[in-house]
Amino acid sequence: MIIILSETFLLNYLIAIVTSIIIAIGIKMPVLPEKPRRFSWTNSALFPTPIIAIGLLAICFSIKFLWIYDGMVLAMIIGIISPLVVKYLFNYVFPNPPVLLEEENE
């Protein structure tokens, strides 16, 4: 089973990633999480905004929902929506970061 990738689909994912990063920077989200990055809980323009954008786009494509222009408009809309979701809706959906034991002791 060879998995062949359609160039249009790849272009759509690229559009969603680029749009989401640009919009995220536009609404003043940090570009990268603060250091040390691997333990950071800050939502930034590079993580997790593009992951949510391509995940949502992949769900739409998997149910064959492309809408107009082979999915390009959909990719842009999802690219615009995902940073807004990450910035304004994220804390309602996901629990807050756990409080460390050392902080509790203080």
Binding site: W41, P48, I52, I54, G55, A58, I59
Partner: peptide, 24 residues
């Protein structure tokens, strides 16, 4: 196909955040 892997990445991220993990 490819979509499945990308959906998996999204679901793993959601699972991470629900399990007190930043998700990287």
């Amino acid at each position: 196909g490819l979509e499945g892997g990308l959906i998996a990445a999204l679901f793993v991220f959601i699972g991470n955040r629900l399990c007190a993990d930043p998700g990287f």
